[in-house]
Design a binder for these strands. Structure first.
Length: 288
DNA sequence: CAGAGCTCCTGAATGC
DNA sequence: TGCATTCAGGAGCTCT
């Protein structure tokens, strides 16, 4: 499952091939992803790419006529291929560029999205972006690495929130990009029990939580950067696999904090479903 | 408004 | 070995 760092890495990876290139056309093989791919997209021809950006886990390709919004869902991936490379199973969309390369979107589970936000053309011929009004962006919280995402903000936002802290940090209207893996890992590092109610977080706990979330995301982005050179591959998946996971998926294994050289208490990682998401934690060192 | 639950989909894992 | 069943999971949407 691509997390925010994977999307950031994907963006940086495809950037050199897309920047200033002209999209000759789109080839849509599967029109139904999470939402239908807009008809309009298949009609677009010869539009110049201006820049790339990212908001939450949405990758944004800005063109002179509008923005292409791509979400990788949980099994999506992007790759740069040559025009002659034949599509494989689940290769749903090709963006054909004038430089001989193709941006290919593959997504077995089709939880991803490929959308279009057209610009409005004014009477004088100038084009105005409608991205600011794009409905999927309306309720998004701060980026985790944004300075506005800080202890004071999290503390205030958590007051009266009667939900588990794990659900709270995974709430996109609070902070974006904290998926299930990072939520589990961050709570372990912050020594907070996933079921602890958000409203009971202290200022100091918020401070620690913010710090570890930023560190984890930052570290993953840096690691992703090391795999960029291999991006032109049918499946150049960079990512969190490189990262040492402490608790995620480690049910019944000894807690890495409780079981050190000095102390071996034998406490094991346990799992629990919270809000339809599997949670992994150590009952002993993660406090409610 | 807040919170819980539903939903899309298919590959991998598990069960018999 | 093979078929059937179960499960995971991002995040918007619907219902209470």
């Amino acid at each position: 499952m691509p997390e925010l760092p994977e999307v950031e890495t994907a963006m940086r990876g495809i950037q050199p091939y897309l920047q200033d290139a002209v999209i000759e056309k789109f080839i849509i093989r599967t029109p139904k992803l999470r939402w239908d791919i807009p008809e309009r997209l298949s009609q677009l021809q010869n539009i110049k790419i201006e820049k790339l950006s990212r908001r939450a886990k949405y990758l944004i390709i800005h063109t002179e006529q509008g923005e292409i919004i791509i979400h990788l869902g949980m099994s999506g991936s992007l790759s740069i291929v040559k025009l002659t490379d034949l599509p494989q199973k689940h290769d749903h969309v090709d963006m054909q560029l004038n430089n001989g390369y193709v941006l290919r979107f593959n997504d077995p589970r089709r939880f991803g999205a490929y959308l279009w936000v057209g610009k409005t053309i004014l009477e004088d011929g100038s084009a105005v972006s409608n991205l600011a009004d794009f409905h999927l962006f309306q309720k998004l919280g701060f980026e985790p690495l944004d300075e506005n995402f800080n202890a004071e903000y999290l503390f205030k936002k958590s007051r009266n929130r009667n939900i588990p802290v794990k659900s709270f940090i995974m709430d996109n209207s609070v902070v974006v990009g904290v998926g299930n893996i990072y939520a589990n890992e961050s709570l372990f590092l912050a020594q907070l029990h996933p079921l602890k109610l958000a409203k009971n977080l202290t200022r100091n706990q918020c401070k620690i939580l913010v710090t570890v979330i930023k560190q984890e995301i930052q570290r993953a982005i840096q690691q992703g950067g090391t795999t960029l050179k291999d991006f032109i591959q049918p499946d150049g998946k960079p990512g969190y696999f490189a990262q040492e996971l402490q608790v995620y998926g480690k049910k019944d294994q000894l807690c890495p904090r409780c079981n050190t050289e000095i102390e071996k208490c034998g406490t094991k990682i346990q799992s629990l479903v919270i809000n339809q998401r599997n949670s992994y934690f150590c009952e002993r060192c993660q406090r409610k």
